[in-house]
């Protein structure tokens, strides 16, 4: 889907850029793929599922779980509220890992 980024997607971009100064930041809105799933019934938001790739040197020395927790904590509110972000598929790498 190549529609313009919605407000949540823009927010995700802003916060991740501010927090991690990433060298790569790719955000894909995959919400349309999950529209028909049982847990999505009654949800009208078009911004529920995102695939996000962040490459940042700040992840160095952190385990995967820590990296993901750190990103989730940026969006605690958006992930907890009704009609907010339902899931983020996260790829978190350091620039060194990315080059492998």
């Amino acid at each position: 889907m190549t529609t313009a980024p919605g407000p949540l997607e823009q927010l995700i971009r802003q916060r991740i850029e501010a927090a991690y100064a990433p060298t790569v930041l790719e955000i894909e809105n995959e919400s349309h793929k999950h529209r028909h799933h049982a847990p999505m019934q009654g949800v009208t938001s078009t911004e529920t599922h995102f695939k996000i790739k962040v490459v940042s040197s700040q992840f160095a020395g952190q385990r995967l779980l820590q990296r993901q927790r750190s990103i989730y904590s940026l969006f605690k509110h958006e992930m907890a509220m009704d009609g907010g972000i339902h899931a983020m598929a996260l790829v978190t790498r350091t620039p060194e890992e990315e080059q492998k």
């Binding site: 927790r69 989730y72 983020m88």
Partner: peptide, 21 residues
């Protein structure tokens, strides 16, 4: 778990991660 999504996997009482992990 202080983890905002489901699924969540636990092994021997310890949270291992969600789908991506």
């Amino acid at each position: 778990t202080d983890w905002p999504t489901i699924p969540q996997v636990y092994v021997k009482g310890e949270f291992i991660g969600g789908c991506d992990v």
